[in-house]
Computed example of a mutant assay.
Amino acid sequence: MKKIFPVLFMLFCLNSFAQTKAEITGKWTIVKVYKIDLATPEELQQVDGFIANNWAMEFREDGVMVASPGNASQVTTWEFDEKTKKMILKSQGKSLPVEILSYQPNTMRINMSLEGRTAEFGMQKK
Rank of each mutant, 00 (worst) to 15 (best):
K35E: 05
V31A: 02
I24E: 04
N111T: 03
I36E: 14
R117P: 00
G116V: 10
E82N: 06
E99M: 06
E99D: 14
Y34T: 11
S73A: 06
F5L: 15
Q19K: 12
S16W: 12
I51G: 03
P69D: 10
P97N: 01
G116P: 05
E115M: 04
W78Q: 01
E58R: 11
W28C: 07
Y34S: 11
M1K: 11
G63T: 06
M57S: 08
Q19F: 14
K2N: 07
K21I: 05
Y34G: 05
N54A: 14
W78A: 02
L114V: 12
L44P: 07
T107F: 13
M10G: 14
N53I: 06
P6C: 00
S73H: 12
N15C: 13
G63I: 07
K85D: 02
C13M: 12
V98Y: 02
M10N: 08
K126C: 07
E99Y: 01
S68D: 12
S91F: 10
N106E: 05
V66L: 08
S102L: 12
E120V: 15
A52F: 12
L101V: 15
G93H: 06
F50V: 04
I4V: 09
S91M: 13
T107M: 11
D62W: 09
M112L: 14
K86Q: 12
V47G: 00
Q45H: 03
Y103I: 13
E79Y: 00
W55T: 15
V7C: 00
K27Y: 02
E82Q: 09
N15F: 15
F5R: 01
K2D: 00
E42N: 09
R109S: 06
F50G: 01
D81E: 01
K90P: 04
N15Q: 07
I30K: 03
E23I: 06
W55D: 12
T77P: 00
L89F: 09
L101N: 13
E99N: 13
S73Y: 11
N106F: 04
A18C: 13
F121K: 07
G26M: 10
D62L: 05
V98P: 08
E82I: 05
A39Q: 11
Q104W: 13
K86S: 03
T40R: 07
E120R: 04
S73T: 12
C13F: 10
V31W: 08
T29W: 09
T84V: 12
Q104A: 14
Q46E: 15
L114Y: 15
F9Y: 09
R109D: 06
L89V: 10
A56M: 14
Q19H: 11
V75Y: 06
P105G: 00
D37N: 14
E79V: 00
A72F: 05
V33D: 00
T25K: 00
N53A: 08
G116T: 13
